[in-house]
């Protein structure tokens, strides 16, 4: 059966990832392996989220951005668009306090809100939130009106201004539609973690954590409980899935 083959592959990948995880950081598992069979839909039992420790995120480091570009194929594919027109799924932001001069650095991307303004305003329902909290654009029914871009408080979304070729098979992107961080949904569905988090940890920065916010025993939940984690524009009450420590 096809199902069995798939399950075997997934089990193997899970074990391999676990082994790799143990090798990278003995004693510390950076994420949890929670297998969901390929034929079952994502459910609200999980809510995927990310925690960024700004104290460990250094100015000038762009490893997470590079990893995202490589994973999804943005950054060099748009040749006709100017810098302001090119897509950016994740970017590094440098903050300087106007009074104290204190400098901080953090990656900024789609915050995967619990009540996303982009989903509210989308006329066709192309802008959507999956049951497990991942906010996505269904490019099949996106008409390219860009109202979601007007509504996003984080400027997390990009519109594609020119025809594209040679996309990654797992990351379809095309002219006239809007796109943004997918929280590497294709990896998450295969029990993986987002490319940015993987890269940040692999390079030893350990500034990013990914996991299930609904699981009190997950690394991310424990850290959030112990150290807290702020939301950008908490005043809007959007309950973001991406949290920042030391903001």
């Amino acid at each position: 059966m096809k199902q069995d083959t798939d399950m075997n592959r997934r089990r193997f990948l899970g074990q391999a990832a676990a082994a790799a995880g143990l090798t990278v950081a003995p004693g510390v598992m950076l994420y949890e392996v929670q297998a969901r069979p390929a034929d079952q839909a994502a459910t609200s039992k999980q809510r995927w989220g990310m925690l960024i420790d700004t104290s460990k995120c250094s100015t000038g480091c762009t490893d997470c951005v590079t990893a995202c570009k490589t994973e999804h194929g943005w950054g060099s594919t748009e040749t006709k668009s100017n810098a302001e027109q090119q897509a950016q799924w994740i970017r590094k932001v440098k903050l300087t306090d106007k009074q104290t001069g204190h400098v901080q650095s953090l990656p900024l991307m789609c915050q995967h809100c619990e009540t996303p303004p982009c989903v509210d305003v989308c006329p066709t329902g192309a802008s959507m939130k999956r049951a497990d909290g991942i906010v996505l654009v269904d490019k099949h029914i996106c008409i390219g009106c860009r109202y979601c871009m007007m509504a996003c408080p984080y400027k997390a979304r990009s519109f594609i201004h020119e025809p594209l070729m040679n996309q990654k098979p797992h990351a379809p992107r095309g002219m006239g539609t809007v796109e943004s961080c997918t929280l590497c949904v294709h990896r998450v569905d295969n029990d993986g973690i987002p490319a940015c988090v993987e890269s940040c940890n692999a390079k030893g920065h350990k500034a990013m954590y990914f996991g299930d916010l609904h699981d009190p025993n997950s690394e991310i939940s424990k850290r959030l409980k112990e150290f807290g984690g702020e939301q950008i524009r908490a005043d809007l009450g959007l309950n973001t899935g991406v949290r920042y420590q030391g903001l």
């Binding site: 034929d39 839909a41 049951a131 996505l136 269904d138 294709h186 295969n190």
Partner: peptide, 8 residues
């Protein structure tokens, strides 16, 4: 796309 079912 919408439900995360990834059978091939």
């Amino acid at each position: 796309m919408r439900r995360g079912i990834r059978t091939s």
